[in-house]
């Protein structure tokens, strides 16, 4: 196994167990919310997805910073995988959020909810990460520019949240409160288990992605050695590192 991807098997098992536990708690243990009913249970997947994906973007920024400092390609790979996974998670998060908003407030989209709006802006920004990488051919430069983008984006995430929250406070009275500051114990427990499960899922999937990319590189090197350089098709242009 690759030196950069360790503990994949125990991590996978832990993810599986936590996820099953979290879902069981969600459906069989957490009480049904009085106002919103059964559909409120989407909260236990939506909010963890959102939190984990935002942390994933920031993590991508930190990995990008490490790449800029050290110049080691593995940091570029980590940064790429973190942002890639965070993007997938946040698409899931925003779809789940939209469903919840429709069920709870009667609208698919609510502009007066700052968390939702700033989340959308962050997604719009990070959607450009792949096109940016794809349009730079030189791998060295691709990695550097992507790292700069990741650092800027990672720093942008919290700031954007502050500004959007301020703007909503001024324009609209605050109606909703997403933060479960006063969740009853059973709901809080379920929520934290699900948060842990989604975080573990993020880590596991990210590691699998890294492993897949490294294995692909390794297979290529072996094919080159066996078949000779001219018999292996050159790598097409790609947004992914390697």
């Amino acid at each position: 196994m690759s030196p950069h991807v360790k503990h994949l098997r125990p991590l996978t098992i832990a993810t599986l167990i936590t996820f099953v536990a979290g879902l069981s708690l969600t459906f069989f243990y957490a009480p049904i919310e009085l106002n919103e009913g059964f559909v409120q249970k989407i909260f236990y997947i939506h909010v963890p997805l959102a939190i984990v994906s935002l942390c994933g973007y920031v993590l991508g920024g930190i990995f990008g910073l490490m790449y800029l400092r050290t110049g080691k390609r593995v940091w570029d790979m980590r940064s790429y995988c973190a942002i890639h996974m965070a993007l997938i998670f946040s698409i899931g998060g925003i779809v789940a959020g939209s469903i919840w908003a429709k069920a709870a407030w009667g609208h698919w989209w609510v502009w007066s909810e700052p968390t939702l709006v700033s989340y959308l802006i962050v997604i719009l920004l990070f959607c450009t990460y792949q096109p940016l990488r794809f349009s730079i051919e030189d791998p060295e430069r691709q990695a550097t520019y992507a790292a700069v983008f990741a650092v800027v984006g990672g720093a942008f995430v919290p700031l954007n949240f502050i500004v959007v929250r301020l703007s909503v406070q001024y324009l609209h009275p605050r109606v909703f409160n997403l933060e479960g500051g006063n969740l009853p114990g059973s709901m809080a427990l379920t929520f934290y288990v699900m948060l842990l499960a989604v975080a573990l899922l993020f880590a596991t999937l990210m590691k699998y992605e890294m492993l897949a990319k490294e294995t692909r590189g390794q297979t290529r090197r072996l094919r080159r050695r066996l078949l000779g350089d001219e018999n292996v098709a050159p790598i097409g242009r790609s947004a992914a590192p390697l």
């Binding site: 450009t128 940016l132 942008f156």
Partner: peptide, 10 residues
């Protein structure tokens, strides 16, 4: 294309 799509969200 890349300039505006990165720039606008920022």
């Amino acid at each position: 294309l890349i300039g505006p799509i990165i720039g606008l969200p920022l």
